[in-house]
């Protein structure tokens, strides 16, 4: 079994709305991908996610 085969073949397997959101995010250019990824991290931390080092 390869690492590749362990990963989801299609986003659908992740379920809606994650599938839709991922498709939209991947379609953005690098700059906007970074903006949304960064802001998502801020929201996650604000909601209580702790990031250890």
């Amino acid at each position: 079994m390869t690492l590749d085969s362990l990963l989801p073949n299609r986003f659908e397997s992740l379920g809606w709305p994650l599938d839709t959101v991922l498709r939209w995010w991947i379609g953005l250019d690098d700059d906007w991908q970074a903006v949304y990824l960064g802001l998502l991290s801020v929201v996650a931390v604000r909601l209580g996610v702790h990031v250890p080092w």
Partner: peptide, 12 residues
């Protein structure tokens, strides 16, 4: 490049 820019966004 995305990781670098996302890191900078969060570093704000």
């Amino acid at each position: 490049k995305v990781w670098l820019e996302a890191g900078i966004v969060v570093m704000g």
